[in-house]
Computed example of a mutant assay.
Amino acid sequence: MIPVIFGCEGPQLTDNEKSFFREVDPIGFILFARNVVDKEQLYALTSEMRAVTGRDALPILIDQEGGRVQRMKAPHWRNYPPASVFGDLACSDEPSLAASALRLHCRLIADDLRRSGITVNCLPVLDVPQEGSSNVIGDRAFSDDPELVGMLGRIACDGLREGGVLPVLKHIPGHGRALVDSHLELPTVESDLAELSSHDFRPFEMLSDMPLAMTAHVRYTQLDDKAPCTLSRIVISRIIRMKMGFRGILLSDDLSMQALSGSLKERATGALSAGCDIALHCNGNMEEMQDIASAVPFAATSLEKQLAGLIYELHRLEPADRQEMEQRYNQMMQDAGILQTST
């Protein structure tokens, strides 16, 4: 098994993909809109992934945040609002309603994922946006108040876990100050450690006990003027591990994003050498996946067991009554003045 999470090309695995995944045995998979057609197809795809790897407790990831970022869409799944809706609600003298609605929001998302065979959701976004920063985060963030972001982030994690799905904190140690989109180029943040610690880092410190986090492809020049976080041993060891106290499993963000330079081999081995436990490659390009697989070391058995244990623990939870959850959620959103569409 290799410590890499791979994407795939389409709504089902090709024969070439099946052969490749059997041979290299990635630690998990990630899904995007190109992989999602409807409920029956999606469950068949995740079942194929389990069959290819021979593992039931398989990490299968997706970004199902709500708002702009939801890979599973209507009419087959509910349209969910972005995170900022709950931050705004919490600031409008309705903190109790915001907390209850957010918890149920994430509980419903988890139910969607679990019924589809998906075990991990790349949520919550704990980035704290700044005035003038790139809109790549925007309304995906709960708020520009770090303490509120941390509080709502924990509620989101609790809702996902109650629904049998693992959360992933992103983008540690903070993407909210970035002036450009890291999908397209490398963001550079000039702020000093004191400013970052009191603001950007705070939500991640508040949730440092969570089991999974994803790095930011951001270069913090006052911490490491050469490498972005994903490739920086300094940022990962001194900031994420020591200062923040995060002891969970650390994933890189997508290695194929343009914020990173060098070959895919260099990016993958660089991320793992810097301290990421797992490298993430999303686009499903077979040539790139082969290059990465040829370069990375095998994963430690302890990492596989740790992930499997986390997934098994949550899957022991009994599914809740979907209809009852929908009714409560609809009433809460109506009370909040937020129009929602369900299927």
Rank of each mutant, 00 (worst) to 15 (best):
V4G: 12
G7K: 14
D15V: 13
F20V: 04
F20S: 11
D25I: 11
I30F: 11
A33H: 10
V37P: 00
D38N: 15
K39E: 14
L42H: 06
L45Y: 11
M49L: 14
A51H: 11
R55K: 11
L61F: 15
L61V: 02
R68W: 08
A74S: 11
A74C: 02
H76T: 13
P81V: 15
P82G: 12
A83W: 00
L89N: 05
C91V: 01
D93F: 04
P95N: 08
S96N: 08
S100G: 01
S100R: 04
L104E: 04
L113R: 13
G117M: 10
N121R: 10
P124W: 06
V125R: 05
V125A: 07
G132V: 04
S133F: 04
S134P: 03
N135M: 05
R140K: 05
S143T: 06
V149C: 11
V149Q: 03
V149L: 06
R154F: 02
R154E: 11
C157T: 04
C157I: 01
V165H: 01
K170M: 09
I172S: 02
P173F: 09
H183D: 07
E185Y: 02
L186W: 03
V189E: 10
S191H: 10
S198G: 15
M206L: 12
S208A: 15
S208T: 00
D209T: 00
P211Y: 05
L212Y: 01
L212N: 01
T215C: 08
R219Y: 03
L223V: 08
L223W: 05
D224E: 10
C229F: 07
T230H: 10
I234A: 14
V235I: 15
M242G: 00
K243C: 02
M244C: 13
M244T: 00
G245A: 13
F246D: 03
D253V: 08
S256H: 11
M257N: 05
L264F: 15
L272M: 03
A279Y: 07
A295L: 01
A299I: 02
A300R: 09
A300Q: 10
Q306L: 02
G309D: 09
L314T: 06
H315E: 11
L317I: 11
E318Y: 03
E324S: 11
E324Y: 00
Q327I: 07
Q334M: 07
D335G: 00
A336M: 06
I338R: 04
